[in-house]
Each structure stands twice: as structure tokens, then as C-alpha cells.
Simulated scan of single mutants.
Amino acid sequence: MTAPAEDLVRRAARKLVRGERLDLGTLAVEAGISRATLFRRVGNREDLLGDALWLMSERTLAKAVRRWETTEGPVVRDAEGRLRCLTVMGWYRADVAASTGLRVLLDNEPTTAIRVLTDPHGRVQPRVIAAYRELLARDVADGGFTPVVDLDSLSFALVRLGESFLYSDVVAAGRPNLEAAAKLLGVLVEGTPAAVR
């Protein structure tokens, strides 16, 4: 068995979704390769964890985009005036917050999970920022809104503030408040609180 890096990342993501601890030795055995080969293909545990968490995030974000396209079509705002990018981001955060596998990881390995999820040079946060920037750019191009700051700064702020609320139980001993996050992010994007749905 050759077990390319993409397959190893998918295997790792499946384990995380199921709430299983990511053990490189076990994963190597299941893939039919040595630990050294696994390391050469995907890096250390945190590298693989980051790639697996990004894969999960990417799929979750794509699901939110498909949901908008299915319910609203190609429009930038829904019938109530809610902006596509903010709604998609809100659905994404809600799905992330509801992820049992991610919750298990945060409960069992809070320091590692937060480090991997929020590292500005890691494998998750920069990709989420880029994905948010793409959502924002699409809405700007389609005439949805005019940002008051550049899209790089805006997407960075949206992700960092969203993380603060999404992982508040781990980083600040508070409860995640996605409604408050949506309102604050709406102010950042449009100058007014976003309606939550």
C-alpha cells in the first residue's frame, strides 16, 4: 500500500470526526506503512492534525456555501437583506461548534487543539482567513457591500474574532456565544449587527 499524503490526511480527519485520538503509530499500521514513512509524507503529529482539521473545515465551509446556493441561489443578499458571506460564515461557525469530534479534541487536548487551530503560521488559521477573504471578495465583486478596510485585514479580523467566541470555553472559560459573534462580525463587515438565523 502506498498511502499518499492526501489519503493519510483523510484517514486522520475521519478519526477526528469520530472523536478518536490521533495516534501516528496506529495510523501508520492502519495505512500499512512505517512511522518514518508516515512522518516523511505528512510531518509530525501537529502537522497532520492541522491538515486534518483544515480538511474538516474546508468541507464544512463548502457545505455552508452549498446551503446558500440551494436556499438562495446566486444572490448576494437573501430576502431579509442578510449578506451571503456573513450568513455562510455563521453557518460554518455553527457547524464547527456542533462538531462532536472537534469538541472531544478540545476537551481532551485543549492546549494542542488551540495551538493547531489558531497558529498564524499553521495549517488551519491562514487557510480559513484565505477562505473568508474569498467569500468577502465574491460579495464585493457582486455588489454586496463596500468594505471600510482592505479584505486581508477584514478577513483576519473576522477569523480571529470568530475564534475568540467559538473557542471561548477553552481560551477564556466562557461559553461560546455564536449569536454575539454574528452581531459583532456584522458590525465589522457592514457597520450594523448581522441578523442571525
Results as ranks from 00 to 15, higher is better:
residue 100 T to S: 13
residue 100 T to R: 11
residue 101 G to T: 03
residue 102 L to V: 11
residue 102 L to N: 02
residue 102 L to C: 04
residue 103 R to G: 09
residue 103 R to M: 06
residue 103 R to D: 09
residue 103 R to I: 06
residue 104 V to N: 02
residue 104 V to H: 10
residue 104 V to Q: 10
residue 104 V to W: 06
residue 106 L to H: 10
residue 106 L to C: 13
residue 106 L to I: 09
residue 106 L to D: 09
residue 106 L to F: 07
residue 106 L to Y: 07
residue 107 D to K: 12
residue 109 E to C: 05
residue 110 P to I: 06
residue 111 T to A: 14
residue 112 T to E: 15
residue 112 T to D: 12
residue 113 A to S: 15
residue 115 R to Y: 03
residue 116 V to N: 02
residue 116 V to D: 05
residue 117 L to W: 00
residue 117 L to Q: 00
residue 117 L to K: 01
residue 118 T to I: 01
residue 118 T to K: 09
residue 119 D to H: 09
residue 119 D to L: 04
residue 119 D to V: 04
residue 120 P to Q: 07
residue 121 H to Q: 14
residue 121 H to R: 09
residue 121 H to K: 08
residue 121 H to D: 11
residue 122 G to K: 03
residue 122 G to N: 04
residue 123 R to N: 11
residue 124 V to G: 02
residue 124 V to H: 04
residue 125 Q to S: 07
residue 125 Q to Y: 00
residue 126 P to H: 06
residue 126 P to Q: 12
residue 127 R to Q: 15
residue 127 R to W: 03
residue 127 R to Y: 06
residue 129 I to V: 15
residue 129 I to P: 00
residue 129 I to A: 08
residue 129 I to N: 00
residue 130 A to Q: 13
residue 130 A to K: 12
residue 131 A to H: 02
residue 132 Y to W: 12
residue 133 R to G: 14
residue 133 R to N: 01
residue 135 L to Y: 02
residue 135 L to H: 01
residue 135 L to D: 01
residue 136 L to V: 07
residue 136 L to F: 06
residue 136 L to Q: 00
residue 137 A to Y: 04
residue 137 A to F: 05
residue 137 A to K: 06
residue 139 D to L: 07
residue 139 D to H: 08
residue 140 V to N: 07
residue 140 V to C: 14
residue 142 D to Q: 13
residue 143 G to C: 13
residue 144 G to M: 07
residue 144 G to T: 07
residue 144 G to W: 00
residue 145 F to T: 04
residue 145 F to V: 06
residue 146 T to G: 04
residue 146 T to P: 01
residue 147 P to A: 15
residue 147 P to D: 15
residue 147 P to Y: 10
residue 148 V to R: 15
residue 148 V to L: 10
residue 148 V to T: 14
residue 149 V to G: 03
residue 149 V to M: 13
residue 149 V to D: 10
residue 149 V to Q: 11
residue 150 D to A: 08
residue 150 D to E: 11
residue 150 D to G: 15
residue 151 L to P: 05
residue 151 L to R: 04
residue 151 L to A: 08
residue 151 L to I: 07
residue 151 L to W: 06
residue 152 D to F: 03
residue 152 D to T: 15
residue 152 D to S: 11
residue 152 D to N: 15
residue 153 S to F: 07
residue 153 S to C: 09
residue 153 S to H: 12
residue 154 L to M: 14
residue 154 L to N: 04
residue 156 F to R: 14
residue 156 F to K: 11
residue 157 A to L: 15
residue 157 A to E: 14
residue 158 L to M: 15
residue 158 L to D: 05
residue 158 L to H: 00
residue 159 V to I: 09
residue 159 V to F: 04
residue 160 R to D: 12
residue 160 R to Q: 09
residue 161 L to E: 11
residue 161 L to G: 12
residue 162 G to M: 08
residue 162 G to L: 05
residue 163 E to N: 13
residue 164 S to M: 14
residue 164 S to Y: 10
residue 164 S to L: 14
residue 164 S to K: 12
residue 164 S to R: 13
residue 165 F to K: 00
residue 165 F to T: 01
residue 166 L to R: 05
residue 166 L to N: 02
residue 166 L to P: 01
residue 166 L to A: 10
residue 166 L to C: 10
residue 167 Y to S: 01
residue 168 S to H: 08
